[in-house]
Simulated scan of single mutants.
Amino acid sequence: MHIERVSIPESAHPIISTSSKGDQSKWRIGNKWIKQDARGYESKAEVLATLILSCSTLPSNRYVQYFPCEIELPDGEITKGCYSYDFRGDLQEVTLERLFEANFTSTDSITTDKTLSTEEKFQQLSAQIESFTGLNIRQELAQLFALDALILNEDRHTNNILFLYDPKFKTWSLAPIFDNGLSLLSDEKDYAPGKPISILKRKVKAKPLNSSFSKQLSLYDGPPFIYKKQLITRLEESPFDFGRAKTVLVSQLNDPIFQKLWIEGENND
């Protein structure tokens, strides 16, 4: 498989993106966002998350597509990463956390309240979002948490859920799903290669409502949305080497807890 090489010009300054695990360098060049692997194989996790979503009922504008690349730094060093295309256009991006701050509150008042169940946190968060934006995104949010459980995304903090505001029409929309890099045990610093996947999986903590992926998964009661057979076929036929990310996903696909996500039969696309 041919992997595109992206050269970073001297004039391009890295934008340091902070995750719950530390910093990652990324660059905006034209309409492309380029992200460099920082802790392991984040780019493979991003590309595999794209493959999963392409085998789902979500339309392509509901998620950001990531493509693998080699990154040539200005000093000539070659590193691994991925790129995506800018989806914002003329719209203003507002993270979930910023949305709450703009309304003189914080998501912490809900997400860290130990007196609330995961379901109660979800309902209160969704109700606040609706009061701030007019959007009822309960199903989309629950679906996002279900996806995160499947891919073991440990970085869905409140700055990784994004809204888009149209200042001309004063309307809100939910941004496409993005930033899935800290998934599928991609952080090799915390999840050492060579250790049993079954043990490593138990170490991963979910966000933002509960550290348990299964409790966040239980919020989703919508229709199945992933074509499992198609996903397995495309995973096996892909010329791209997903490495351990593929092994982790296959392990997840065999877990009966995810049965409610699978669409029986084939996607005829």
Rank of each mutant, 00 (worst) to 15 (best):
F242K: 05
Q24P: 00
E93Q: 14
T105A: 05
I16S: 13
V204M: 04
A175S: 14
G222I: 09
K246S: 07
E188S: 11
K114V: 12
N31H: 12
D148A: 03
I16N: 07
P256K: 09
T247N: 11
P9F: 06
Q92Y: 10
H157E: 04
K121Y: 01
R156T: 04
A38R: 01
F104S: 14
K21T: 10
V6R: 13
L253R: 06
V204E: 02
F132C: 00
F87M: 05
G40H: 01
I161K: 06
R62P: 00
G76H: 09
K44Y: 10
H13S: 14
S183K: 01
S54H: 02
Q139M: 13
W172P: 01
E4W: 10
S251R: 08
E154V: 02
E120Y: 01
K114Y: 11
E93D: 12
D108G: 13
F67C: 03
E130N: 12
E140N: 10
Y220K: 04
D75P: 05
K228G: 05
D90M: 12
S212H: 06
Q252Y: 08
S198W: 05
R28K: 14
S238L: 04
T79L: 12
K168S: 09
I29C: 05
T107Q: 08
G22V: 07
K44R: 15
Q139S: 13
P193I: 07
P208E: 11
K44F: 08
A206V: 01
D241M: 09
T115I: 08
E188L: 11
Y165H: 13
S212I: 01
L235Q: 07
E77F: 03
A127P: 03
G40I: 05
W172Q: 08
L125F: 11
W172Y: 13
K44L: 14
S238A: 11
R62N: 11
N159P: 02
K260I: 05
R5C: 12
A146P: 09
I129P: 00
Y83E: 02
E119P: 00
T158P: 00
S25H: 15
T107N: 03
A142K: 06
D166F: 11
D108T: 12
A38C: 12
G243Q: 09
